[in-house]
Design a protein around this nucleic acid. Sequence first.
RNA 1: GGAGGAUUAGCUCAGCUGGGAGAGCGCUUGCCUGACUUGCAAGAGGUCGGCGGUUCGAGCCCGUCAUCCUUCACCA
Length: 878
Amino acid sequence: MDKNLDTKYDHLKVEAGKYDYWLKQDSFKADPTSDKPKYSIVIPPPNVTGKLHLGHAWDTSLQDIIVRMKRMQGFETLFLPGMDHAGIATQAKVEERLREDGISRYDLGREKFLEKSWEWKEEYASVIKNQWATLGLSLDYSKERFTLDEGLSNAVKKVFVDLYNKGLIYRGERIINWDPAAKTALSDIEVIHKEVEGAFYHFKYMIEGTSDYLEVATTRPETMFGDVAVAVHPEDNRYQHVVGKNVLLPGNGKPIPVIVDEYVERDFGTGVVKITPAHDPNDFEVGNRHDLARPVCMHLNGTMNELAGKYDGLDRFIARKQLVADLEAAGLVVKVEKHVHSVGHSERTDAVVEPYLSTQWFVKMTEMAQRSVDNQKSDNKVNFVPNRFEHTFLQWMENIHDWCISRQLWWGHQIPAWYHNETGEVYVGADAPADVENWTQDEDVLDTWFSSALWPFSTMDWPNEEADMFKAFFPTSTLVTGYDIIFFWVSRMIFTSLEFTDERPFENVLIHGLVRAADGRKMSKSLGNGVDPMDVVQKYGADSLRYFLTTNSAPGQDLRYNEEKIESTWNFINKIWNASRFTIMNLDGMTAADVNLEGRTFNIADKFILSKLNATIKAVNYNAEKFEFGEVDRYLYSFIWEDFCSWYIEMAKVPMSGVNEEAKTTTRMVLAYTLEAIVKLLHPFMPFVTEEIYGLISGAEASISVSAWPEERTFFEDEHAVANFTLISDIIKSVRNMRAEVEAPMSKAIRMYVDVKTERDLGMLKENAAYLERFCNPSELTLNTGLVLAEETMSAVVTGASVLLPMEGLVNVEAEITRLSAEAKKLEAEVKRGTSKLANEKFVSKAPEKLVEEERAKLIDYEAKLAEVSARLEALKK
RNA sequence: GGAGGAUUAGCUCAGCUGGGAGAGCGCUUGCCUGACUUGCAAGAGGUCGGCGGUUCGAGCCCGUCAUCCUUCACCA
């Protein structure tokens, strides 16, 4: 293998071929019979309706991070891929395609239409799989599932039949949300409510046999052909005299009774409500109470039917317009007010949803919802991250309505119910009745969420509870999804799982937000502000995209797309690339496999970086366990860029340019050891580039994806490590001070020597021969400005006296005085702050002792610094 | 009407159990220093939305107000 890296990180070159390599190695294959502890994540199955968007990329990247980390940490890890048939959404797409050819699904017939739908599915499934590969998701394709697979379909049937037999599924005539475009029923949450400017129409309902009338207001005038009564409140004195009489429907003069019902609010509108049981859920209830008829006045496609008389066949909105105009002409309109109200729209077709009387299948929710709520108080609870989403979930569960699950579609799981051709008897079963020729199966299919509700266990070969998959990987470990589908999906998985397996479907559910466009708005097709993740990958690489997506927000928060940040992520990777390049150039053929740190003599820089590395690994582990990947990023970023690149690599240049071979070997080992740990820690986030670097420095044959996670390892006895850490921190601070004083550029290593001020620092330096090598050769101490340290300055350093560099001609004295004055001012403020804090008796007595001690130490430190700065200032002023 | 979130540097956002405000980008100044100018070094910039409260101590806890956003329900 070529052991050199280009000067520049080329994401396209680095990412090419890696995914195939992983698949070839079977790196992602999970063995359910393994003895190892198990970890499993099922992918939220994307709809086979189209390509993946940035939201998917975010969601799946999070999962892949968790899964790759767990795999490296020694778990038998399953990341299960799969897709959702997405009933109404896919059917709408297929129908749209057919429409372009001028045909409808009815022209084709059910069977042919389903063929077309399967073709569509295959087409988009392959697009999606390519996108998963591009993103580098470590999915086990041998376990791939689709919601319409035979196994999953059997699970669906079993659940339906069992729920029916338990009385938790029923068929009934109810007001449902009707989508006249798709011509199907919808569940409540598939309806999107939008504020629409409509009108409040006030009509005269003439009291039969009089010239008096009741004023009735409505937002949907066309439904009056379904009116069977008008209602007033039983205690509304304004209308007692007309109760029991008839009023005439303005549209056709038909008499209907005036009834009383508590449902009417006296203060709203006119206090008179038209009752249309077949077109309004509240009116339906009123109708039931009063045993009223339930005439339907519209066809399924949203046009008026024969009840509407002359408006028969007209679209409901055209009929509304004409009806109002006609009534206006007839003098039956009191007024028309503008009225902003929310109108339900179909989530998929955007058609205005019509409340419509229809016979449908429902899941009875109260008992299962209650069980889910109770379960959250048990040890089997689902751990929501962030926790606040548990309240969202509970609240929804506590206010839930029955779930309408039948859909008048073809693409989906056909309902396993048959009706007897003669008796009308209902048969529900996984298999068709024996004398099937006498029966007709329900034409409808199930809500697509009915099958996704079973996803965590139906994908694990359930209902075979003895299956290896089920036993090994269910309940799953973590589910990752957006807060927008807690109701649709998360909650339904929870209650079905509890009902059928007595287990939670997943231990944790990590909730993330939405990806927003750069302007803060939702990304949407209509706004044209969407960003294709594949374009981002092309430009910056999947590694950059993944890192950006997963480290730039806190759990549960939305993420604004920000190309500059992706760019800076790219720069970070380039930085890692070049640190690797430096390392490899200096390893002289050594690999991480050759590293043996036992018994080596470490210099201060080695101790520093190894201690820091250990602290970083701990912080990464701690935060990753909490899914705080933004925090993980901050630890990794500063460790890599600051500690490793800016300090360790710079300091490593000293021994590497020296003559002490042992010191060089130690440095090489520490470099290789640290870099290997770095790429492993980063691998879950940026799998491609870390694989590339690992291949060059690890000396290992296998992929980094199956390598062992860096262990927390304390090289030095605790105090020693801490002491070293403090010492190097002091030096770093001294160097920083020096940089501020001397405007000329200098190598960091050299500056470390000239800035030694105390016996302790000096002692430390003497211990570190690699540095002293250069220190003992004053002729090399030529600064870039041409300044050479004089012999007397050298001896001043060695005796530990305070050193003042001869800065004349090197430093702008005026500017330096200004700067030092400012610093002195800051220090004075600090001293003042510390003094007053310690003078506060309450602080001293109530605050933890440790803290008070720290304050005292800090005060002493600041006082010393102030004295020093003042002295320098004085010296400069002379 | 119910529930939840946001408000921190010019911009985009972090800030985990209360103990001296952080990052990236942008900006200023100086540098091609033997991995990296996609870089190096130094720096400026914040009464943490307002007002109360709890506390020795509040960006963080409590109350309240304001602005923005989500979501559920209702809307004859």
